[in-house]
Design a protein around this nucleic acid. Structure first.
Lengths: 164, 164
DNA sequence: TTAAATAGGACTAAAATAGTACGCTTTAAA
DNA sequence: TTTAAAGCGTACTATTTTAGTCCTATTTAA
């Protein structure tokens, strides 16, 4: 019903690997090897996150990425927007006639208020919250790297739990 | 980000066409002609809604469907579950090891609490709320039936607004 | 007995998502 | 000043999900 995409989930994992402004930048391939995600995929995610200014890139040799802002002030809503795009049914509330997705949208204003409620929930959760979470021994690493039957979301958190 | 599927949106429209228990059943083709949706699509929706016991079918000639319960006591969450299936990331909270989508899921418990918050919002909205909404002149019928460029969500609400 | 319904499933087509590849630019360090 | 390690952008492919259709069987009122 409400499903974050794999990419968004991966995105939070990727973000959790980066340091704050001031720390050494972490390269995409570092993140990839630490998490078990493909480097191309990680790059793609970091590029999206960069366009949304959640991370800052340092180009050139020894370059990489760091968080543009402290994890406490990056919200889940921003992460989702950055990765999935703002293609959500969200904004066409006041001036419905002007809304350029009106034809596609057609959600009545009850759906809109649902959407607003959801959004405010997402705004109130920070990347720091998501990170803390990782500490909870919630996912038992079975045979991590291995057991990734295709069509399966890589259990990247388990990889992290194993330590490197 | 949070997007109800077309089918779910259509589902609420279809539901809004049915009477309560006791009223004459409305056939799928009636609903189809009133809303402008395809009959096959409406049938499919009603079948799903029937399996979830939100509507009751009267088979045979002069048959059709009616709401199993008053619109006030059918929640948006139930409608979504009925149509999109409970394939949501929702339930694997308590006994994460038993959860059969654990490998796919991998959402930390912060995502889980987000999900719970969203779900409770959806539980608190009833079909009656969704229906009332239709009264709000929110969507202006342009050239209804016509303008359905493919890839576009039929503006079924506009059709209804036109009367019949 | 017939025609109007729903039931269920299989199937196709289209769209969204996930993941990869490649050539270009930037930049620290040898 | 050259080189190699980074990011940038874009295009592409494959996979999965969603939307929509069709067909055959069953039910039931007239």
């Amino acid at each position: 019903m409400f499903r974050i995409s794999k990419m968004t989930d991966y995105g939070t994992v990727v973000l959790s690997q980066l340091g704050d402004d001031g720390s050494l930048p972490t390269s995409a391939s570092d993140v990839a090897s630490r998490t078990g995600l493909g480097t191309a995929t990680v790059s793609k995610l970091l590029k999206s996150l960069g366009r949304a200014n959640l991370v800052t890139a340092q180009r050139g040799s020894n370059g990489g990425y760091y968080l543009s802002r402290p994890a406490e002030s990056i919200s889940a809503a921003e992460i989702i927007d950055a990765i999935e795009g703002p293609l959500a049914i969200t904004e066409c509330s006041s001036d419905h006639q002007q809304c350029d997705i009106r034809a596609v949208c057609s959600v009545g204003s009850a759906w809109q208020s649902i959407n607003r409620a959801i959004r405010s929930t997402l705004v109130s959760i920070s990347l720091a919250d998501l990170k803390n979470n990782r500490a909870i021994p919630d996912v038992i690493p079975l045979t991590p790297m291995m057991s990734q039957a295709n069509n399966t979301r890589l259990d990247v958190r388990a990889n992290l739990a194993k330590g490197q």
